[in-house]
Amino acid sequence: MEYAFLSPIEIAARTAEIIAPYLALEGPAMPMLHAVQAAFGFVPEASVPVVANALNLSRAEVHGLVSFYHDFRHEPAGRTVLKLCRAEACQACGSDRIAAHASAALGIGWHETTPDGAVTLEPVFCLGLCAAGPCGMVNERTVARINIARLDAILEAAR
């Protein structure tokens, strides 16, 4: 993620470059926000006016978009984002126990990041792997049939 070394002015300039390829699309807002988040790991405050300007929206409207969709973050996440599925089919396979173990081991709750910036814990509602629960995602990688041992290995690698 590149944001750490950039000033707000640089972020704004980078944002303009990132969103340029999407300007010609029909309904470009979502692809733009995805691209911004992919580059920075979240949607920085300094990106908002740039996106708003490109879309002919107010800043408040862009904030409205970012806050409506669960995927978009207002602030940086940990180096590893651990998403655990909370939906029914995974619950039927004991996902609550997996989530409780992760939360206790990391000392954080949902949507929180460990103080050392290593891990962010997020809920996800179904990954379509419901015949092999409990499931989750470690950054971009999906994992199924998570048990305590597999979870511990994931957490160990993330530290």
């Binding site: 309904g27 807002a29 979502m30 926000l33 995805h34 969709y69 669960h70 995927d71 996800v124």
Partner: peptide, 25 residues
Amino acid sequence: VRVGAGAYVCGEETSLLDSLEGKRG
């Protein structure tokens, strides 16, 4: 292909259309 952003309600067809248009779903 257009990618959603983690909102269950965007499976409802009119909310989906608003999302495709670039609005809150």
